[in-house]
């Protein structure tokens, strides 16, 4: 069966033409529906770049290869179109939006996605109820949702807010970029529970992380090592444990 996300030989560069710098260099990766894949790799390897290229951030030029979601080429779509198709990125560095309350932001997003898919808008009471439920699951203070998006939020609060948005929008394909960094021990568990609750035979997930501890909670079906712009090693869940013990040098030395 065709994998939900299929990345083939993907290359991408950042910067102006003359000083363009290749970051992704022939990266291939398949994530079938229903599976959770972890991506680990040294700092600067290109993990966040991959997440941005998949979600359509400007400033990155795809120089080769392809990426499809359910068979559709996503690389030619607007970011908002990809979002409506179910692509969601939990940002490594969530962005502050002054003056726009969380609830307004998420409701605007939800209705925009629904509209793009030809669905009805969510009613205000339904939205508020859903928001209350999700906030409760994530131990989020309802007052926080009235504040402007991410403005003045602590590092951990920002990460939890990303997961709040994810659970509200119920995307089909989830990319979590270092969602665990900045979370305290309890919050890590809460967030992991939230993510696990989203696991579903119709959903795919890419979990970018540096640490095994997140994978203790969110059990991956596969672990990939991304280095120098490509996947250089793929293994089962135990690969993460080995990486933690032996470090990248040990594992990569063997791969090379």
């Amino acid at each position: 069966m065709r994998p939900m996300l299929k990345i083939t030989d993907l290359s991408a560069a950042v910067g102006e033409d003359s000083e363009a710098k290749t970051i992704l260099n022939g990266l291939s990766l398949d994530v079938p529906a229903g599976e959770v894949h972890a991506i680990m790799g040294p700092n600067g390897a290109g993990k966040s770049t991959l997440s941005y290229v998949l979600t359509g951030r400007s400033g990155y030029e795809v120089t080769g290869g392809s990426a499809t979601l359910n068979g559709e080429n996503v690389l030619d779509m607007d970011p908002e179109t990809r979002a409506a198709k179910g692509m969601f990125l939990s940002f490594q560095y969530p962005v502050e939006i002054p003056g726009v309350p969380v609830m307004t932001f998420v409701r605007t997003a939800m209705n925009a996605q629904r509209k793009a898919r030809g669905e009805d808008e969510i009613s205000a009471p339904d939205f508020i109820k859903k928001s209350r439920d999700v906030a409760k699951t994530l131990n989020l203070d309802a007052e926080m949702l009235k504040r402007p998006v991410n403005v003045g939020f602590s590092g951990g609060e920002k990460k939890r807010l990303e997961i709040y948005q994810m659970m509200m929008l119920e995307p089909k394909f989830l990319i979590l970029d270092e969602t665990d960094s900045g979370l305290d021990i309890d919050a890590l568990k809460t967030v992991a529970d939230g993510v696990n609750a989203m696991r579903d035979p119709s959903r795919g997930m890419l979990v970018i992380t540096h640490y095994q501890r997140l994978l203790d909670y969110i059990k991956p079906d596969k672990v990939h090592v991304l280095a120098k712009g490509r996947i250089i090693k793929t293994g089962e869940a135990d690969l993460a444990l080995r990486l933690e013990k032996e470090g990248y040098d040990g594992v990569l030395g063997e791969a090379a």
Binding site: G59, D78, E80, I97, P98, F105, A109, A112
Partner: peptide
């Protein structure tokens, strides 16, 4: 541009994202 992309990643079309950011600015 970061704010614009963040909003678009959530599914908000570019012009609506601009309007939303501007509304936040003048709130």
């Amino acid at each position: 541009e970061d704010q614009l992309f963040y909003a678009r990643q959530r599914g908000i079309a570019e012009e609506d994202a601009v309007a939303l950011l501007v509304n936040g600015f003048v709130r």
